[in-house]
Design a protein around this nucleic acid. Structure first.
Length: 553
RNA sequence: GCCCUCGUAGCUCAGUCGGAUAGAGCGUCCGCCUCCUAAGUGGAAGGCCGCAGGUUCGAUUCCUGCCGGGGGCACCA
């Protein structure tokens, strides 16, 4: 019996009570059952009676009694108690709980997948760094978490496209080109240009690849440097992200929006909707109609397009590609964009509540040797994504970023992440996986098979630690669904840490393999099912985080 | 001034739709390996859940105000 089976059973009990005229309420659409913190409160608990008490006009415990009476005969349920103000505490029969192990092993890599977001077409945009330098720590959080969310949404049935918006148009690119050219000439970059040491390297690379570039007419040189530098940096970012196991389905070039007057067409579309006006020689979008602080400029008085205009065109482009939900993952320094992104949707005639979703990630502080490192790309003193990965490894960095809520600023202590491996929770989880893998390996070496599904006796898994483990394994699909729905990947990591602990405690109390020359028993085999089920969940969970599940450590 | 976000154990952080005795890791103290990985595990100590009100049978959770940390308020990119 799974948690959702139990929820269905509770719901059925409620409906029966209503149909029998014992309760005068409208049955709820769904019932929440949860794992109680205290074991004395059973395997599962529900507060449904507390919630129905008021509409029913009855004391909660009386409502609970009505539901309990109809729930008790359910096959697989051993006991239903009423506790406290009116909680229903349910205890399952060992066999009913134990079958979860078989179900999980049979589902394998599919276990945890669910259809809670089925039918949604989601565009996930994240990182979207300018192609004017290496990816740094300002990008690294969403690189890890955004990728995890992509995996989570996919596992929950959504059709997901991960997209990277390449800001390859505009004045910033020109400054980039001018900066490389200056370095190539042995000069300082212009005012407001790029000062990072990598610009020197780029200048050298460009000169090596195109020795003739300084032969070009002077007014063409910066553009040539810009294009060469752009190609190199974009390739570098793509390579870095792939090696960080962050994959994008679409690299969307801003230039393609401008090509063929696309931005002008977008403005025309918005104009048809009635939210565009001209003032003081510029063209404005009346975003204040939809909660923005001030109207935003689309076309400056000098006739050039703003980035905001491109953002509008990009929005329409995404919608035109069939996405019904656009998720933007931004850093805390961009939260001012939230209202205007929503306003774009509203000005386009969409409902921002359904089409636009902006996730704001707080900053990551990086500490090394007790001092905070600065993150500024333009100041030159760059801590790149690759720097951190080189020090701590992809698994540790991804996991450290994925295990915290993006609502909180995060301190990554490089010393801690690199010095002592066991200070990092990722190893705690990975170790559990390696430990199980070792047990399963030993079983094979001893010629012990867990046997076929028919010979598996779930009722043998009756030890308290086995029940704990089975209960934890049963939570996984709900954890995946909830994490996806709330866009909170860290829930998966926290769940895995708890599961690893539950396994370690089981392992400590329950011998899996026979001792010495003993003949393997049905209990040994049943526990192998349980071990394999746990390994499957740990592996599936780590896969959602893009972290390896090692067989040995 | 306005807006976003955070404030929970010594440190780093969990705690969806309000529920039972608020948790984990690290750190500290005391234990547990002749047998499946001790990168493990048992126990102890450690909390006015920033402060003050409000809603509620019930608030760490929701609302308001205040205090403190971080971030943002361009015809910038």
């Amino acid at each position: 019996m799974t948690p959702s089976d139990l929820a269905d059973a509770v719901l059925r009990a409620v409906r029966e009570a209503v149909d029998a005229g014992e309760l005068s309420v409208t049955p709820p659409a769904a019932v929440a059952v949860e794992r109680p913190k205290q074991k004395e409160h059973g395997d599962y608990a529900t507060n449904i009676a507390l919630q129905l008490a008021k509409p029913a006009g009855r004391p909660p415990r009386q409502v609970a009694e009505l539901i309990a009476a109809r729930l008790r005969p359910t096959p697989g349920i051993a006991e239903v108690d009423i506790a406290g103000p009116g909680f229903l505490n349910v205890r399952l029969e060992a066999a009913a709980a134990g079958v979860a192990a078989r179900r999980i092993v049979e589902a394998g890599a599919e276990y945890g997948r669910n259809d809670s977001l089925a039918g949604q077409r989601v565009n996930l945009e994240f990182v979207s760094a300018n192609p004017t330098g290496p990816l740094h720590l300002g990008h690294v959080r969403w690189a890890a978490v955004g990728d995890c969310l992509g995996r989570l949404l996919d596992a929950s049935g959504a059709a997901v496209t991960r997209e990277f918006y390449v800001n390859d148009a505009g004045a910033q690119m020109d400054k980039f080109g001018a900066s490389i050219r200056a370095r190539a000439l042995g000069e300082e970059p212009p005012e407001g240009g790029y000062l990072g040491a990598y610009v020197n390297d780029l200048a050298r690379e460009v000169l090596a690849a195109r020795p003739d570039i300084l032969e070009l007419p002077e007014d063409e040189q910066s553009a040539a440097f810009r294009e060469e530098g752009y190609k190199a940096q974009l390739a570098e970012q793509q390579r870095t992200l792939e090696s960080f196991r962050t994959h994008f389905d679409v690299w969307f070039s801003e230039r393609t929006l401008h090509a063929g007057g696309g931005v002008e067409k977008a403005i025309a579309t918005l104009r048809e909707q009635g939210h565009v006006y001209d003032s003081e020689g510029a063209v404005f979008l009346r975003t204040t109609d939809f909660g923005d602080d001030k109207d935003r400029v689309l076309v400056k008085s000098d006739g050039s397009m703003t980035y905001f205009a491109a953002d509008c065109a990009y929005y329409l482009d995404k919608r035109g590609r069939g996405f019904d939900r656009l998720v933007y993952m931004l850093g805390a320094d961009h939260h001012g964009y939230v209202n205007r992104l929503r306003a774009i949707a509203a000005c386009a005639g969409d409902d921002p509540e359904t089409t636009v979703e902006v996730l704001i990630g707080q900053f990551v502080k990086v500490v090394q040797g007790g001092e905070e490192l600065k993150l500024s790309k333009r100041a030159g003193n760059v801590v790149t994504l690759e720097d951190v990965v080189d020090l701590a490894g992809v698994d540790a960095v991804r996991y450290a970023l994925a295990r915290s809520s993006t609502d909180s600023t995060l301190v990554l202590d490089i010393d801690l992440l690199t010095k002592q491996a066991n200070d990092n929770p990722v190893f705690y989880v990975q170790y559990a996986h390696a430990r199980i893998s070792g047990v399963l390996r030993n079983a094979r070496d001893l010629g012990i098979e867990r046997g076929d599904a028919e010979s598996f006796d779930p009722s043998l898994l009756s030890h308290e630690r086995e029940a704990d483990l089975l209960g934890a394994l049963g939570e996984f699909p709900r954890v995946v669904a909830t994490s996806a729905e709330l866009r909170e990947a860290h829930r998966v990591a926290r769940y895995l840490e708890a599961l690893a602990g539950t396994y370690h405690r089981f392992y400590d109390a329950c011998r899996v393999l026979p001792m010495g020359d003993e003949e393997p028993t049905d209990l040994n085999r049943a526990r192998l099912w349980l071990c394999e089920a746990t390994r499957v969940v740990l592996a599936n969970g780590l896969a959602l985080l893009g972290v390896n599940a090692p067989e040995r450590m």
